[in-house]
Design a protein around this nucleic acid. Structure first.
Length: 184
DNA sequence: GCCAACGTTGGC
DNA sequence: GCCAACGTTGGC
């Protein structure tokens, strides 16, 4: 694992940002150490970003997987994360070198476009786009048969823009990369 | 564009 | 610490 820049602290959800205006009074201290403890084994993540233009206070939120690929060194800072839980996860649990899925949200065809290293740096494209609807069909199935995606945060904590992904979830998703999409 | 679900704020 | 009002997310 070469590379690494270390940008971390900023945070993101590409776009947003608002240059640090939001205040951070809530939940530090003990709350976040709980977050850290609970997720200390996590080394895989899912990062949401919006691939389509959307303006918020005059700032374009767009940042697609292709935008990452064409960034200098294929690295970007993940800034603009406002949600406290997401920020705490990044601050306390995410480590340089961890891997993550790059997820396209708030768009026509939401789903996972590729893999990044948690710098955040491009690693590779998925062999095919894995859509939200496909993941959801597995999630539904796995709820009944105790499969690996039964608790995936994409569905159980839908608004989190920086999500922990368990090794089981990560491996399962990689394992369906080579298959034809089951359901769309 | 709608709106359900969820997160944040702030008065009490 | 509760909870109503309000704001945001994000799939549809």
């Amino acid at each position: 694992m070469a590379t690494i820049t270390v940008a971390k602290v900023g945070s993101k959800r590409k776009a947003a940002s608002s240059g640090g205006s939001k205040t951070l009074k809530n939940s530090l201290g003990k709350k976040s150490s709980v977050t850290a403890n609970k997720n200390s084994h996590i080394t895989r993540w899912l990062l949401k970003s919006e691939p389509d233009s959307r303006f918020e206070n005059g700032v374009d939120m767009k940042f697609s997987f292709d935008d990452l690929k064409s960034s200098p060194d294929q690295i970007t800072q993940w800034d603009g994360v406002r949600n406290f839980q997401a920020r705490n996860l990044m601050r306390d649990c995410m480590k340089v070198g961890h891997l993550g899925f790059f997820y396209h949200s708030n768009c026509k065809n939401p789903g996972i476009a590729g893999i990044v290293k948690v710098d955040v740096k491009y690693v590779r494209d998925l062999k095919r786009f894995i859509s939200l609807s496909e993941l959801k069909s597995y999630h539904e199935k796995h709820k009944t048969n105790d499969g690996p995606l039964k608790n995936m945060r994409l569905f159980t904590n839908r608004r989190l823009s920086v999500q922990p992904v368990t090794d089981e979830e990560y491996e399962f998703i990689l394992s369906i990369e080579d298959q034809e999409p089951k359901k769309k």
